[in-house]
């Protein structure tokens, strides 16, 4: 869990794509603060400050909006199409005693003996939906795979969760398992149709009648 960091912001009056592009050109990121049935505030934050906060894996922070500090949760981060540049951030107002629903990463710890003996580690669940206090969002849920042999599965219900965290996923969902290695087919069979079936193709009888 990260400490509540403080992020300075400026209220932005110009909205829309052009103003946002101008802001980004000047090293600022457009953002919005909403929630708690208050008026949404359109703000901009420094790109460097935001990058630094994101690097620290902070989930809740304090944003200075018009001289007033608001505790917010990073609700959504929009990236460009390559996923490298932050375009916009949504901050959701939260109170310290509030429970929030969010997603956290699942972090695998250790090396599974099943992998050493030739199995393949399969992780269907990389993120997990949880409900927890806003100020105590875990950075990740750690799963020890030190004892995972081939054919063994770790389900959601078997996870060690920090205090106050409730999982919103299906309890029987598979988090990680070690499967038997199956070589990918290198040369696929040559049989099979050369052309797909055309579902709008007119029947031969109809053409004969014409």
């Amino acid at each position: 869990m990260a400490e509540a960091l403080v992020l300075k912001s400026e209220v932005r009056n110009g909205l829309g794509g052009r103003d946002s592009a101008r802001l980004r050109k000047n090293g600022r990121i457009p953002a919005v603060v909403y929630g708690h049935k208050e008026t949404p505030a359109n703000i901009s934050v420094s790109k460097d400050d935001l990058t630094s906060i994101l690097r620290q894996h902070a989930r809740t922070l304090s944003v200075e909006v018009g001289g007033k500090n608001e505790t917010v949760l990073i609700q959504e981060i929009q990236h460009d199409y390559l996923g490298s540049t932050v375009l916009h951030v949504d901050f959701r107002r939260v109170s310290a005693d509030e429970r929030v629903r969010t997603t956290v990463d699942i972090e695998l710890k250790g090396i599974a003996p099943g992998v050493i003996s030739g199995g393949v580690l399969d992780q269907p669940l990389h993120k997990i939906h949880i409900e927890c206090p806003a100020m105590a969002i875990p950075e990740s849920i750690r799963v020890k795979i030190d004892a995972l042999v081939i054919g063994q599965v770790i389900h959601v219900k078997e996870l060690d969760l920090p205090a106050g965290v409730t999982v919103l996923e299906d309890a029987d969902a598979v988090v990680v398992q070690v499967k038997t290695a199956q070589a990918l087919e290198v040369v696929a069979g040559a049989e099979g149709a050369n052309e797909p079936e055309v579902i709008t193709k007119k029947k031969e009888k109809a053409t004969d009648e014409e």
Binding site: A190, E195, I199
Partner: peptide, 12 residues
């Protein structure tokens, strides 16, 4: 063998 659809609405 390269992939292709099994069924299509139109060939072209």
């Amino acid at each position: 063998m390269p992939q292709m659809p099994k069924r299509v609405k139109f060939r072209k």
